[in-house]
C-alpha cells in the first residue's frame, strides 16, 4: 500500500511542517501578509496547518499608503472571511511627512515605508519570528537564504553567517536581540504558486486578472491610474488598456502588462509562454543585479 504524493502535496506538507515548528518553538510569531499571490498561498496553508484550530498568530500588513486600492479592499475582506487577527502598520514618520514616491523617489519611499515600517512594527509588537512568502526561485540571493533566516538587532541579514539546515531539523534558538524570518514557501516556484492557487481555488486580488483599466505609459512601464494622487506629466494621457499585474506592490512602482488573460489557466498559460521573469515589473530591482542582496542586508524582507 502506498500513499502517492504529487510535488505540490509535498511542498504543501513541507510548508505546514515549517509553520508548526515555528508555532511550537517561537514565543511570539506573526505572519507577514503582503496581499500578493504568495501571501495568499501562505495564508491558505496556515489555515490548513492548524485546522481545526485557527492559525495561532496574527497576520500583519506593512501598509505604505500607496498600495493599489483593490489590495486594501481584498485585505479587509480576507481577514473578515477567515476570522483572523489583522494588524496594519503604517510608518508614522512617513505618514507625517506625506511620503510620496513621485516626490521622494522610489528608493526613499520603499526604504521608509517598507523596510523601516517593518522593523518598527516587529519591534513594537515584540515579534520574534515572522513568516514571509519569499521563494528561492525569485532571485539569486534568495536561492541561498535559509528557511529559518536570522536577523540581528538592527534586522540585518548576514549571508556569510547562516546556520546549516539539515534534513527538516530547524534550529530556532535565538541570541539576544535576534529575530527570525521564516520562509515556508522557499522551495516553491512561480509556476507552483499559480498551479496551487488554481487547484485549491484560493482567492486572489483581481488585479492579477486582465481587464480594461486606465493606465499611463511612463518610461516604457504601464502605470495604473489608481487614484487622483498620480501626477500626470506633460503629454501623458490616461488610456484604457486591457492589462493585468504579474506582481503587486505600490501602484506607482508596479508596472502592468498588456494581456488578455482573465482566468487562472490563462494566466498560467501566459506565464509559461512568456519570456520575461516576474520581477521585471518591479521598478526597484532595475538598478543592479545585486540590489536585492543589498536591500536584504539592510533589513528589507
Amino acid at each position: 500500500m502506498q500513499d502517492r504524493m504529487t510535488h505540490l502535496q509535498r511542498l504543501e506538507a513541507e510548508a505546514i511542517h515549517i509553520m508548526r515548528e515555528v508555532v511550537a518553538e517561537a514565543e511570539n510569531p506573526v505572519m507577514l501578509y503582503s496581499i500578493g499571490k504568495d501571501s495568499s498561498v501562505m495564508l491558505h496553508i496556515a489555515m490548513k496547518a492548524f485546522y481545526p484550530a485557527k492559525p495561532p498568530f496574527p497576520i500583519m500588513h506593512i501598509d505604505t499608503m500607496w498600495k493599489f486600492s483593490e489590495m486594501i479592499e481584498f485585505r479587509e475582506k480576507m481577514a473578515e472571511d477567515l476570522g483572523l487577527d489583522l494588524i496594519v502598520h503604517i510608518n508614522p514618520e512617513g505618514q507625517e511627512m506625506g511620503m510620496n514616491p513621485f516626490i521622494h523617489g522610489s528608493s526613499v519611499h520603499t526604504d521608509t515605508m517598507k523596510t523601516q515600517g517593518l522593523k518598527q512594527a516587529l519591534d513594537a509588537h515584540g515579534f520574534d519570528v515572522a513568516f514571509g512568502g519569499a521563494r528561492r526561485d525569485e532571485e539569486k540571493s534568495r536561492a541561498k537564504e535559509r528557511i529559518f533566516s536570522f536577523r540581528n538587532e538592527s534586522h540585518h541579514w548576514d549571508p556569510k553567517r547562516q546556520r546549516p539546515e539539515l534534513w527538516n531539523l530547524y534550529n530556532s534558538r535565538k541570541n539576544n536581540g535576534e529575530s527570525i524570518r521564516v520562509f515556508p514557501l522557499s522551495n516553491w516556484t512561480e509556476l507552483d504558486i499559480w498551479q496551487y492557487i488554481h487547484l485549491e481555488n484560493i482567492p486572489i486580488v483581481p488585479l492579477y486578472l486582465a481587464k480594461p483599466r486606465s493606465v499611463v505609459e511612463r518610461d516604457g512601464v504601464l502605470i495604473l491610474v489608481d487614484d487622483d494622487r498620480l501626477p500626470l506629466k506633460e503629454g501623458e494621457e490616461p488610456m484604457m488598456k486591457t492589462v493585468r499585474f504579474r506582481t503587486l506592490g505600490c501602484y506607482p512602482l508596479t508596472g502592468a502588462v498588456e494581456s488578455e488573460a482573465d482566468t487562472l489557466p490563462d494566466i498560467i498559460q501566459e506565464m509559461l509562454l512568456t519570456t520575461t521573469s516576474e520581477r521585471q515589473g518591479r521598478v526597484i530591482d532595475f538598478d543592479s543585479s545585486a540590489s536585492m542582496e543589498k536591500k536584504k542586508q539592510e533589513g528589507y524582507f
Binding site: T6, H7, L8, L191, Q195, H198, L199, P265, D266, I268, Q269, M271, L272, L273, T274, T275
Partner: peptide, 23 residues
C-alpha cells in the same frame, strides 16, 4: 519560460491536469 509543450498553447487545462501529477 518556454516549456516545450504544444499543450500549453492549445489546451492549457489538459496541460495543467497532467502537471498536477508531477513528482
Amino acid at each position: 519560460m518556454a516549456h516545450v509543450s504544444d499543450l500549453i498553447a492549445t489546451d492549457i487545462e489538459s496541460y495543467l491536469a497532467a502537471h498536477e501529477q508531477k513528482e
